[in-house]
Design a protein around this nucleic acid. Structure first.
Lengths: 224, 224
DNA sequence: ATAAATTCGATTATCAACAATATAGCTTTT
DNA sequence: AAAAGCTATATTGTTGATAATCGAATTTAT
C-alpha cells in the first residue's frame, strides 16, 4: 500500500462526479431538483453503476441528499445551514491562519497576490461564477499552507457547499456587489505581522458573507 | 423532499457499512489489511454492488483508503495524522462548548452525568473497546447540544478515526491506564460556570490523548 | 363528498456476467 | 547476476437485466 499515490487511470465514477459537481456549481441543476439515475447515465454515456458511485460521492460532499428507494436531490439552502457554514468557517479559518502564520514565506506572499489578482480580474470581467471559484481558491491557500491534511479535507467539504450556495445566489440575484475593498484588506492583513488583526479580519469577512447570503435566502423564501 | 427523514427500509449497503465499521473498530480487520470485494460479498451473503457502496461510505468516513484498480485497505496510523486529529478536535470542541454553553440545562447535566457514569462503569469492568465508545459518546453530548448540524457531521467523521486509532492502540497495548481522574475534572468543568476554565480543560484533555497515542505509535514503529 | 384501499407507472436497489487493470513471477536479454 | 520484457492470475471496474419499492392517480366503500 504505497503512501505516495501513483498517477493512475481515473475511474468513470470519479470523472462523472467531477462533471456533475461542475453542473451543480454552474447552476445547470438547480437546488431541490431531482437526479434520475437512468437519465443521467445515458446522458453521460455510462451505466448506472459508475453513476451511482458519482452520486454517492457528491452525497458525502454534502451536495446531494438521498432517500432510499425514493430519489436523490440537490440540497436546498436553509438560513440555518448558511449560518452554520459561516460560523464553522470562521473557526476553521482562524485555526488555519494560526497554523500557517509561521510558515508564510516569499512563495506564500507571491501566490497569495497572484490569486488575489486573479480574483480581481474575474470581478472586473463580471464573470460571477469564476469569481466564486477564485475567491475560494484564494482562501484555500491558507489551508494549504497550514500543512494539516484533515483540516484541508474538512475545508474542501465546506468549500463545496459554499460554492453551491453562492452559485444559486448568483442565479437568482446576479452580481454580489463590490467586493474588492473587502479582499484588499484581507490581503494586507494576511501579509502583515499582526495575527490578532488577521483574526478580526476573518470574523468581519465571514460576517459579511453570512449576512449577504442570509439576506438572499430571506428574499427568496418570501417571494416563493 | 421532506426535511424530516422518514423511517424507511435500510439499504443493504448501509447495513453492511455498519457491520464493516464495527468489525474495523473491534480490530477484527487490522489497519493496513486489504479488503477484497468478492470475499466480503460472499461473506455477507450479498452481491458486490451493495458491498462496494458500503466500502465507498467507509472511504468517505476516512476509515478506508482506495487505489483505483488496485485495492482497498484499512487506513494506517501515522503520528502526523494523530497530531492533526487532536489539534483539530481541540479547535472544534472548544467551538462546540462555546455554542453549547448557554444551552446547558438540567437535562444536559443529567445526561452528561449518565454518560460519565456509563464510562466509569466500562472502565471498572475493564472492557476497553466499550470504554472507547462511551468516552466518545460522552464528548458527543457537547456537539449535540451545540445545535450545529454541520459541526456534528465533522465531529462524527473525526470520531470514527479516533475510534479506529484507539481500537488499534488497544489491540497492541491493552489498557490505556487510569483515566477516571481526567474525566472527573472534565465533568466538573462542563457543569461549572467558567468557560475559559473549560477551554483549558479541553486543551489539557486533548494534549493527554494526543501524547498517549503518539507514544504508542512511536513504540509501534520502532518494534516494526 | 370524503376517506380508505388499490392499481399502475416510474425509479431505485440488487444481481450475475463481462471487460479492464495491476501485480507478481517467470523468461529472456545484456 | 541484474534489468527489461512478457505472461498468468487475481482483483477491481463496468454493464445490462431483474427485483423491490415508492408515490400518485384511480377506484371503491361509507
Amino acid at each position: 500500500m504505497p503512501t505516495v499515490p501513483k498517477l493512475q487511470k481515473q475511474t468513470f465514477g470519479a470523472r462523472i462526479a467531477d462533471e456533475l459537481r461542475r453542473s451543480i456549481f454552474a447552476g445547470e441543476i438547480a437546488p431541490g431538483s431531482a437526479l434520475i439515475e437512468t437519465a443521467l447515465a445515458s446522458q453521460f454515456g455510462v451505466s448506472r453503476g459508475p453513476l451511482r458511485e458519482a452520486i454517492r460521492q457528491l452525497i458525502d460532499e454534502g451536495l446531494l441528499v438521498q432517500i432510499p428507494f425514493t430519489g436523490t436531490h440537490v440540497v436546498e439552502l436553509s438560513e440555518q445551514a448558511v449560518r452554520e457554514i459561516y460560523s464553522l468557517r470562521t473557526t476553521l479559518e482562524t485555526f488555519a491562519f494560526r497554523l500557517a502564520w509561521d510558515r508564510r514565506d516569499a512563495e506564500f506572499a507571491n501566490e497569495l497576490k497572484a490569486r488575489q489578482a486573479a480574483l480581481v480580474e474575474a470581478i472586473d470581467l463580471g464573470d460571477e461564477l469564476e469569481c466564486i471559484r477564485r475567491e475560494l481558491h484564494l482562501h484555500s491557500l491558507v489551508y494549504e499552507t497550514a500543512n494539516h491534511q484533515i483540516l484541508l479535507e474538512v475545508w474542501n467539504g465546506l468549500k463545496g457547499k459554499l460554492q453551491l450556495y453562492w452559485a444559486s445566489h448568483h442565479m437568482a440575484h446576479g452580481r454580489h456587489g463590490p467586493r474588492r475593498d473587502s479582499h484588499d484588506s484581507f490581503l494586507d492583513a494576511a501579509l502583515g505581522d499582526d495575527l490578532p488583526a488577521m483574526e478580526i479580519e476573518i470574523e468581519t469577512h465571514m460576517r459579511l458573507g453570512s449576512e449577504t447570503t442570509e439576506r438572499f435566502l430571506k428574499d427568496r423564501n418570501q417571494t416563493a
